[in-house]
Computed example of a mutant assay.
Amino acid sequence: MKLDLAGRTALVTGSSQGIGAAIAAGLARAGATVGVNGRDAARLAGSLEELRERVPDGRFVAVAADVTTQDGAARAVEALPDADILVNNLGIFGARPALEITDDEWRRYFEVNVLAGVRLTRAYLPRMTDRGWGRVLYIASDSAVAVPAEMIHYGMTKTALLAVSRGFAKEAAGSGVTVNSVIAGPTHTEGVEEFVRQLVGDGLPWDEAQRAFMREHRPQSLLRRLIEPDEIAHLVVYLSSPLASATTGGALRVDGGYVDSVLP
């Protein structure tokens, strides 16, 4: 299969590191011009240097904006007004006992993990439908389906994304624009390394800590290891391509078999 995105422009939110950076690199390898998003302009410049080392022929544009705010989202759209592909990747997570999650934390998780993507979709979807082509993707999580007891506020937001993406897919029906969510499983990122250490302690070498985490906290995984960010990116690039033209309104899993179901 040739995943050809030449001539297309993509915006990937929260793409200065981790899964977002892997998605940005994958889209660039397929030929897209990629808007790389982060809040800190200096840090974003460093991320672009790293991405250009990974993809020497890639075309990247810095989109320094806090897309969790209305003003920041407007700046992102101004910087990249005609995106053909929107990947709503930005998200936060963290462990917290269920009865200790405050109202402010519930609101913050919803605003960052859900509303930021909704706001950008409202901005870009009409432009895509006018052109008759576009891709909108939400990076969800196995936590959307198998809500972890240690972070139900995070699980709630990822469940919401499944509904949001399905709803916007209906809004885009018949237009040539597809809208999907990607259910990512436990993935190896810097933030997850910190999370693993938080749950299993700092005393173990990383390989042992990872295995202990999967065994004790994610025993459903059929991979029995953390997924690498590039493995998430491969599915995102496919769904962003013309070859995925008949896939819309879906929740597609790249979870290592974590969710014990043939459907989400």
Rank of each mutant, 00 (worst) to 15 (best):
I92P: 01
R54E: 15
I85S: 10
T102K: 03
K170L: 11
A172I: 07
G117H: 02
I227F: 07
G201H: 01
E105C: 08
V236Q: 13
S175E: 00
T157C: 11
V87M: 04
M128Y: 04
A22K: 04
R122Y: 03
R59D: 14
R39P: 05
Y109M: 11
L263W: 15
H153V: 13
G201F: 02
R29E: 14
L86R: 11
D57M: 10
R215K: 05
A169Q: 05
I92G: 01
A32K: 14
E190F: 04
L161W: 05
P205S: 03
A146F: 11
G250P: 13
G167I: 03
L99R: 15
V118H: 15
P56G: 03
G14H: 01
G203E: 14
V177M: 07
R119W: 01
G72S: 04
P148H: 06
D130N: 13
T102W: 00
R166V: 01
R75A: 13
A65P: 00
L115N: 14
G58T: 08
G256Y: 06
N88Y: 10
G117V: 03
A116Q: 04
A169F: 02
V36Q: 06
A10L: 02
P205L: 07
G257N: 03
L162W: 02
D84A: 10
A244D: 06
Y109N: 03
R197E: 10
G201K: 03
H234V: 14
A25E: 10
K2T: 11
T129A: 10
R197S: 00
T102L: 00
L252A: 09
D142K: 11
R166P: 01
D40Q: 06
P56Y: 06
F168T: 06
S165I: 06
A246W: 07
T178Q: 11
I85P: 07
P229E: 08
G7D: 02
G249W: 00
P186A: 10
V192G: 00
A62E: 07
R135F: 06
E231S: 02
H217D: 14
L226W: 04
R59L: 13
N113A: 11
E111C: 07
T9R: 15
D40H: 06
A98S: 09
G191N: 02
D103A: 12
A42K: 06
N113W: 07
D202E: 12
V87E: 09
G167Y: 00
S245N: 12
R43V: 14
I232S: 09
M1S: 15
M1N: 14
S240C: 03
T121R: 15
R122S: 01
A173R: 05
T129D: 02
L243I: 13
V12I: 02
T102Q: 01
V118R: 12
G167M: 00
R218L: 15
A21E: 08
G14F: 01
V12F: 01
A212I: 11
P242V: 09
D84P: 06
